[in-house]
Amino acid sequence: MRIEWIDKDKVKIRVENEKDLFTLYKIINPSDILSGYDYRTIEFEKGKEKKKVWIKIEVERVKFSEYGDSLRINGKILEASEIVVGKYHTFDIRIGSEIILEKKFTKFDIEELEKATKKRKEIYVLSLDNRNIALAKISDRIEIIIEEEVNIPKEDLNRDSIYKQKLSNVIKKIEEKPEILVIVGPVFYPDYFEEYIREKLGEDIKILKFRVSQGGINGVIEFSKRKEYLDTLKEYEILELNKIIDDFIKSMLNGMVVMGLEKVKEYAEIGNIDYLLISEDFYKKMKEDGKINIILNIIDMVEKTKGKIYFIYKNIENYELINKFGIVAKIKYKI
């Protein structure tokens, strides 16, 4: 996500990936003001025509589309650059959309926007084929750490051991063992050398493998432009959230948790929440039922007492446990 603050109550937003859509879903609520360009039927003296116009609405409903690939935000039209037909408009927000959001931004809203725009995690990528081996780090840019030329004759009986030696030289350039290593390459290369790479870096390392058309630097660049790169970024977030849920389960055994809306609200009111976990489905249901202010008030109370808030998505381990209650929390002390 890219943002540009116009003033303290107004921000310009560009959506860059699917995760940005859920960020907007979390922070846009009824009575907020949204504006941008969209197609709309306008009136002329001699008839009507559909064209792209600037529209400002007061938000009434926010929901995901049927397939979850866009955010539909409906509301009453406040202003428009042309005389438009009808009193209401629905923005269909997708990747690439640009909007301006006006509201009294809470600490929660600002933190969600900051998380969506912060520098991406560094990802180590090992790119292999029969000619080159490259090691790179990808974050907001690509940093090539090393590229080793291979070019071993096919008839060389020691081909496999020579290749592994060259691969070992490249792996040694990894300064600190990463949580996730991505291996890319054509045909069998990622699968064939996975076991050897684990021997060098440790069996417990999480490895993701993807096919690209070639190895070396070109393979790194190809991977960085594909959807699999964004999938890898999600894996980092999943790892972090899984650690939080593991801590929550351990805290359950010690009686240091509360579960369900009423209990969580009760403990939030006295400032006794260390962190809050909210399931994706529960948040959506509260929003669709017009009860989102209950959740926002709890979030506000938790943040004022230095507690943390985590949203738990469906692809997280033990999601069913959190979603059973919808909202749960680890407490600071027993009462």
Rank of each mutant, 00 (worst) to 15 (best):
K225L: 15
K115P: 01
D92M: 14
D140T: 02
I33G: 00
I335V: 14
D140E: 13
Y189A: 04
G215E: 04
F105C: 00
S168Q: 10
N29W: 00
D9Q: 13
I244H: 08
Y283W: 13
L24C: 07
T106I: 03
S213H: 03
K265F: 11
D9A: 09
V125D: 00
E199T: 12
D231N: 15
K10N: 10
S213F: 06
Y229A: 09
A134T: 05
S65E: 09
Y196R: 01
F282R: 05
K48W: 11
I28M: 09
K50A: 13
P30S: 00
A134W: 03
D274P: 02
K154I: 15
L34K: 03
E195L: 05
P190D: 06
I322L: 09
T117I: 03
I83Y: 13
V59P: 00
I171T: 00
S35C: 14
E147T: 11
K243G: 11
Y163F: 09
E4D: 13
E66H: 09
L239F: 05
I238K: 15
N293V: 09
Q214F: 11
L126I: 01
N272F: 06
G68I: 03
E122T: 11
K8Y: 09
I99G: 08
I3F: 02
R131T: 13
L230R: 14
M259L: 13
M286L: 15
E43G: 08
Y283V: 10
I93L: 07
G75R: 04
I331Q: 01
I335S: 11
V170Q: 00
E155C: 10
